[in-house]
Amino acid sequence: MRIRLPSLLLVALCGLAPAALGNLLHWSVWLWGFMSTVTASGSLLLVLTFLGSGHPRADPYGTEEPEPPAAPTEQPYQETRVIDAALPSAVDGYDFLFSATVWWRPAPDHTGRSDGASPALAVSAVVSRALEIVCRKQPGRASFARFFLEGELSVPLPDRSGRVMALAADATLTLAPADRERLRKLSDLRKDEEIWEYERQHERNKRRYLGDDVLQSAGSAVVWWLARHENEIEKAVDMIGPLAQIAAAANDEEVPELFRHLLVPPVGARSEATVGGPLWDAPGPGAEPFDREAEVGAADRLVLLMAAVGVKPDMDEYTVLVHRVVTSLEMAELYEAADEIRRALLPMSDQDDGAGEGEGPDADTGEGDTASRPFRDASHQPHRPTAPRAQNEDGDES
Score class of each variant (00 low, 15 high):
Leu9Tyr: 03
Leu9Thr: 06
Val11Ala: 03
Pro18Met: 04
Leu21Lys: 01
Gly22Thr: 03
Asn23Thr: 13
Leu24Lys: 11
Phe34His: 10
Ser36Met: 11
Leu44Glu: 09
Leu46His: 11
Gly52Asp: 14
Thr63Asn: 07
Glu64Ala: 06
Glu64Lys: 08
Pro69Asp: 13
Glu79Asn: 10
Thr80Asn: 02
Ala86Val: 07
Gly93Pro: 00
Ala100Ser: 04
Ala107Asp: 08
Ser143Pro: 01
Ser143Cys: 04
Glu150Lys: 09
Ser154Pro: 04
Ser161Gln: 14
Asp179Trp: 03
Arg182Cys: 08
Arg182Leu: 14
Asp192Arg: 12
Glu203Thr: 05
Lys206Val: 01
Arg207Ile: 05
Tyr209Asp: 02
Asp213Gly: 01
Val222Ile: 07
Arg228Val: 00
Ala244Ile: 00
Ile246Ala: 07
Ala248Asp: 04
Glu253Gly: 07
Val255His: 02
Arg260Gln: 03
Pro265Glu: 02
Pro266Gly: 04
Ser271Gly: 06
Ser271Val: 02
Val275Thr: 15
Gly276Ala: 01
Val309Gln: 00
Tyr318Phe: 03
Val326Tyr: 07
Val326Met: 12
Ser328His: 09
Ala337His: 10
Pro347Thr: 05
Gln351Val: 11
Asp353Thr: 14
Asp353Cys: 13
Gly368Phe: 15
Arg376Asn: 06
Thr386Val: 14
Ala387Ser: 14
Gln391Ala: 09
Asp396Ser: 09
